[in-house]
């Protein structure tokens, strides 16, 4: 079977790898490219652990054909921290105990980042809506909502 070479931008840097026919973006990122931050929860679109942004929009990498990202910008949670400096959302998740097992966290962070990029001063309802496609089985969501609101407030102050 012919493998397809794919050149795309991952967290701001150009990357290239081969995709198998029908391979989903999640597997491609994890196995082909070596970015382990998007997680495999269900492979069916229901959990959101695999959420990435493609050209700024949140999408589910498990339901995206790897080859459809050729020439596009993909963002994963691995690109949030700048060296040893955490992204304000990551800081806020830490401060607010918004991660327990942490499995949902990369997807939550990406959904939260996409929200704040579009709407820097979200209401609580906006936050709930933005993470409604991400399941967390540990925290009960409240700490996550608080963390995202706190990160937004921090930004508004800066």
């Amino acid at each position: 079977m012919a493998r397809t070479p794919i050149v795309f931008m991952l967290n701001g840097s150009e990357r290239a790898s081969f995709a198998d026919p029908g391979q989903n973006l999640l597997e491609f990122l994890r196995r082909g490219v070596g970015d382990l931050s998007p997680k495999y929860g269900c492979g069916q679109g229901t959990c959101g652990a695999c959420t990435v942004t493609i050209d700024g929009e949140t999408q589910l990498s498990c339901l995206t054909l790897a080859e459809s990202v050729a020439g596009k910008h993909v963002q994963t949670a691995a690109g949030l921290a700048a060296g040893a400096t955490l992204h304000p959302l990551q800081e806020a998740f830490m401060e607010n105990f918004a991660a327990q097992c942490g499995y949902c966290t990369p997807g939550m962070l990406i959904s939260a980042k996409a929200l704040l990029d579009r709407n820097p001063t979200p209401t609580r309802e906006d936050v709930v809506e933005a993470i409604s496609g991400n399941i967390c089985r540990c925290t009960g969501y409240e700490p996550i909502i608080e963390a995202i609101l706190a990160a937004a407030k921090g930004r508004a102050r800066a």
Binding site: N24, G43, G45, C62, L63, T64, L65
Partner: peptide, 21 residues
Amino acid sequence: FMAGGTLVMRDVNAGVAATRI
């Protein structure tokens, strides 16, 4: 035929889809 793929890719992931997309 695949559009957004939210349903087609479920079948692809489960290995039950057609052979060509």
